[in-house]
């Protein structure tokens, strides 16, 4: 059975009045720190903020299953893990992201569907980013799909750091390393992220993550102020 599959598709924009902001970058790039800073900043301005992460860290059994895989407590094929991410993301969007956006809140997400391609390619051991696999990952995981699609964030901050900086931060932070937190893996994920940013230049706001926490926080606040016109 041969099929030719062909379709045109737009990214699915946020149709609600809330604002959807995501933080992307390799492990150790400063996502959690900057997300917490922005949360505090916005709350001080009296904004209603909802924080979530993909995969979910709590409140989702699928998220818990994923974290077990990431901590190597369960071993499953990489394609299987990718589907678990998508299942978890569907639940996260339905339970947290969409209701918050509908009611006009600001959603801050630690990772979002833009993590698909960098991590999906790594899991499949693919280094040729222009191969059909990149499309397939986007289709099967819902960035572009006839079957279902995810809303993409209004702003995605990509925290760009060198692998060396990331490694240093990870070793200071965590005792228990996850499966992606090795030097050569980080390097591969980083180059996939940067390839993706070139493909979708309008979707990413690239931040120099080598700078001090304070400077980065200020820069991010600047972008947000412009967006919120405050």
């Amino acid at each position: 059975m041969k099929y030719r599959i062909e379709f045109d598709i737009d990214l699915l924009r946020n149709p609600y009045k809330g604002l959807y902001i995501a933080f992307e970058g390799i492990d150790g790039s400063g996502k959690s720190t900057q997300l917490a800073r922005l949360e505090e900043y916005l709350k001080n301005k009296g904004k209603e903020v909802v924080v979530t992460s993909e995969p979910r860290k709590k409140g989702s059994n699928v998220g818990i299953l994923i974290h077990q895989v990431l901590k190597s407590k369960i071993k499953i094929p990489s394609a299987s893990l990718q589907h678990l991410y998508t299942a978890d993301r569907i639940i996260n969007h339905k339970e947290i992201v969409e209701p918050a956006l509908k009611s006009g809140k600001i959603v801050l997400s630690h990772r979002c569907l833009w993590s698909n391609v960098p991590y999906g390619l790594l899991d499949r051991g693919i280094t040729n980013f222009n191969s059909v696999d990149t499309k397939l990952i986007n289709i099967t995981q819902g960035l572009m799909s006839m079957y279902h699609q995810f809303i993409i964030p209004d702003i995605t901050f990509y925290l760009k750091v060198s692998v060396e900086t990331a490694m240093k931060r990870i070793s200071n932070l965590r005792k228990e390393k996850e499966i992606y937190e090795k030097k050569e893996k980080l390097a591969q994920i980083k180059s996939a992220y940067e390839w993706q940013i070139k493909q979708f230049p309008n979707e990413f706001t690239v931040i120099d993550g080598e700078k001090s926490e304070e400077k980065i926080a200020k820069e991010i606040q600047g972008y947000i102020n412009k967006k919120l016109k405050i």
Partner: peptide, 9 residues
């Protein structure tokens, strides 16, 4: 912006 997707499977 529209993205065109096509491949054989």
């Amino acid at each position: 912006m529209q993205y065109e997707i096509s491949f054989k499977t």
